[in-house]
């Protein structure tokens, strides 16, 4: 860690990604997106994005191809529950998965 200039501040945290480690390993169910049903992909324009809106972690990337950062997704399943066309399904994390 770099040297601090202000020596009055003794305990100041630095911003870091993955403060609690790779939270993806908390997950027992993994979200899988069906591109044939996902509204932005089907319409080929920015639309819907309710998974992005409701994700408590902010790990959903809103784009034409919606992407979920599985390194940090905790697997709560809110996106699958709130998806209007039911394009996201929660699949059991297999121990042998790569």
């Amino acid at each position: 860690m770099e040297e601090r200039k202000d020596d009055n501040i003794s305990a100041m945290g630095t911003v870091a990604i993955g403060e609690a480690g790779k939270t993806g390993d908390w997950r027992s169910l993994r979200p899988v997106i069906d591109r044939k049903k996902c509204i932005p992909t089907v319409k080929n324009k920015p639309a819907c994005f309710l998974c992005w809106l409701y994700c408590p972690e902010g790990v959903v990337k809103a784009g034409i191809e919606v992407e979920i950062d599985l390194e940090y997704c905790k697997g709560c399943g809110i996106c699958a529950e709130e998806c209007p066309p039911r394009a996201i399904s929660m699949i059991r994390e297999d121990k042998s998965h790569e």
């Binding site: 911003v15 990604i17 609690a20 939270t23 639309a47 408590p56 902010g58 709560c76």
Partner: peptide, 30 residues
């Protein structure tokens, strides 16, 4: 959906927090 695009796109909480799965607070605070 129109209102959704007016939201500030920048995230101020980096992923990998200590909050529980499905926490209502992390969503509201975000």
């Amino acid at each position: 959906p129109e209102n959704l695009f007016k939201l500030n796109a920048k995230e101020y909480i980096l992923p990998g927090t200590r909050a529980c799965q499905g926490c209502g607070l992390s969503l509201g605070y975000r």
